[in-house]
């Protein structure tokens, strides 16, 4: 028999509230990670965030579902890296070219000649969907968070 000093047993409602909130927060974090992943990958394909001081040893273009639209283009660099680039970036340099740029710069030097890195539609599009996606995730998370509060308050 429980003593009079023992704390009352936790009611199931607060526990359900905590687990639902934790699950909702975890799923929202997963959604956020996917948004950040998209931004990171599409940004890297523009070359802007990369630092380069090497040669372009080889280029490879593989077709996907829509040849010419969603081709997978990769460059093998002299420093051993293999990077993916967008189609407009692929047109800037040929095999054997010397590539130089600092991370964050929008200018690439190809065999000493400065060329502006083109704007890539994938990266622009991914940036544009960030705000609506965060709005949707925040709305769902807020309601999942608040719903249990109302359930708990109910008799």
């Amino acid at each position: 028999m429980p003593s009079a000093d023992a704390p009352p047993p936790a009611s199931p409602a607060p526990r359900a509230q905590r687990t639902t909130r934790a699950a909702a927060a975890g799923l929202a974090a997963l959604a956020l990670a996917c948004v950040l992943g998209n931004l990171r990958v599409t940004s890297a394909r523009t070359l802007v965030p990369l630092a380069l001081a090497t040669t372009l040893d080889a280029k490879e273009r593989r077709t996907e579902k829509h040849p010419g639209l969603d081709d997978a283009i990769s460059w093998t660099l002299g420093d051993g890296r293999r990077i993916e680039v967008d189609a407009p970036v692929d047109e800037l340099a040929g095999r054997g070219a010397r590539l130089e740029k600092a991370a964050g710069e929008r200018t690439l030097r190809v065999d000493g000649r400065a060329v502006e890195l083109p704007v890539c539609d994938d990266e622009v599009g991914m940036r544009r969907i960030v705000a609506p996606t965060l709005l949707a995730v925040a709305s769902l998370l807020a309601v999942a968070w608040a719903t249990r509060r109302r359930d708990r308050a109910a008799p």
Binding site: T20, A24, L27, A28, L30, A31, A136, V137, L140, V143
Partner: peptide, 9 residues
């Protein structure tokens, strides 16, 4: 992830 959140809501 959005679908999972939707089910919770």
């Amino acid at each position: 992830a959005l679908a999972g959140l939707s089910v919770l809501v």
